[in-house]
Structure formats: C-alpha cells, structure tokens
C-alpha cells in the first residue's frame, strides 16, 4: 500500500481516495461519539438544570463529586465497564462487550459528568438572575427549568461540544471495551494507538489529520456558537 513513498503522501492518498477501510473507521468513530454525546445530553442537561435550581442536603457533595468525575481517567472508565460487561460481570448477559454499543456506553459515561457539571454551572448563573422574576410571574420548577435550558442553549451547546471533544480524543475507554476489532470496533484513536506500532504509519497519520480537523471544527463551532449567542440573546 505504501512502498517507499513518504507516510504523509500515503496518508493524504487514503483521505483523498476515500479508502473504504479508512472511511469505515472515521464513520464508526463519529457514529459512536455522536450517539454517546446525544445520550449524555439527554440525561445530563435535565439533571444539571435540576441540580442548579434545587436545594437538598448533600447537594454540595454531589456537585464536588461530579466535578471530580469530569477528570476521570478514560482507562478507568473502560476498565469499569469491561468488568460490568464481561461475560462473568453483572451486565454480561447482554453480550455487549467488544461491540459499538459498549463503546457508546463507555463514552457517554465519560461525557456525562462534563455535561452535568457545565450545565449546572451555566444554569445556576442564569437562575441567580432569573429566579425572583420567574417566581414573580408564578412559574413552577418545571416551566422554570425549560425557560433556563432554552435561554442558555448557546452556552449549553458549547458544553456539549466540549464533551464531544473529550470523547473524540480518548483512547483508553473504547480500546478496553471495544477491543479495536477491524471493521467492528476500530475507532480513529484506537487505530492510531495500535496501527502505529504495527508499522501502518499512513493509516495512523491519515486518521490523525482527520482528528485534528475535527478538533478544529468543534472549536470553531463552539466559538461561533457563543458569538451567535451574544448577538441573539445579549
């Protein structure tokens, strides 16, 4: 595949020719990560908002714990789900280990604390300025949370992009629960981690270029989002 040509040239060829194996890996990565972020958003946005507006004993401990979980090493998350999902584990019966579903679950768990923590922070700030007014017009907690989530949507989109960034970049979790099986669970990061050592520099480099591109796009989106937010909402 790559003769004596430089790995960089070979990598660009892979990208330009939409090499099927290459495209497959990129597609799987995006599908897994996007699904994981959507899952985390579905659970994390309402939970974060609820945490922002409610007051209960132990709330501060919960907030500290979730902030700490943001920094959880992906390999530890991977190991945890490996133990849960492996044949002898409590969730072994579902047969999910070494499937894309397992990778989605692991990545969603990595992203969830980020979404909850950033949502809580954003909503809490907004709640501080909205609270009395929303109570004044007789809004109950459910309506208030919907108002807050909607009005913070641009900042929250940035939180989701941050989660997407973390999930795209991590190797440990998906490698452990996915297993880097060619055509099934081989993601961009796992391919880079393992194919480099096997000498397939072109594939690794090509995927690296795509990863950097995705990171750039995500950051540009986040930047644009906050600009639109200001123009739109003040």
């Amino acid at each position: 595949m790559m003769d004596d040509a430089s790995p960089l040239m070979a990598a660009l060829t892979l990208i330009m020719h939409f090499d099927p194996v290459f495209v497959n890996i990129v597609q799987l990565s995006l599908r897994v990560t996007l699904t994981a972020v959507c899952l985390a958003a579905l659970i994390g946005l309402p939970l974060g908002a609820l945490l922002a507006v409610s007051r209960f004993r132990g709330r501060l401990a919960v907030i500290v714990a979730i902030n700490a979980l943001m920094g959880l090493p992906p390999v530890v998350v991977g190991l945890t789900f490996f133990l849960l999902l492996s044949r002898s584990g409590p969730l072994g019966g579902f047969g999910l280990l070494f499937t894309p579903s397992a990778m989605i679950i692991a990545q969603a768990s990595l992203v969830l604390p980020i979404v909850i923590a950033l949502t809580r922070q954003t909503i809490e700030d907004l709640w501080a300025s909205y609270r009395e007014y929303l109570q004044s017009i007789g809004m109950g907690p459910k309506q208030a949370i919907l108002t807050l989530l909607w009005d913070a949507r641009f900042s929250l989109a940035t939180a989701l992009l941050a989660g997407f960034g973390r999930a795209t970049a991590e190797v440990g979790a998906v490698l452990i629960v996915g297993g880097n099986i060619a055509g099934v669970t081989r993601m961009m990061t796992t391919a880079i981690a393992l194919e480099t050592s096997k000498g397939d520099l072109a594939l690794a480099l090509g995927l690296g270029i795509i990863l950097v591109g995705i990171t750039l796009v995500v950051n540009a989106l986040a930047f644009g989002m906050s600009r639109i937010g200001v123009r739109h909402a003040g």
Binding site: L126, S129, Y130, E132, Y133, L134, I137, G138, M139, Q143, T147, D151, A152, A233, G234
Partner: peptide
C-alpha cells in the same frame, strides 16, 4: 430589571405564556 436572554417581544410572550 430582570431581562430574559430573549428578544423584547419574546420577553413579553414568555410572561404571558407563564400565566
């Protein structure tokens, strides 16, 4: 004044919807 992060018009419709 507590202004919602919305347009002037939407600030009013939001309050009306609330009641």
């Amino acid at each position: 004044p507590v202004m919602l992060r919305r347009s002037v018009l939407d600030n009013v419709t939001h309050a009306l919807a609330a009641i």
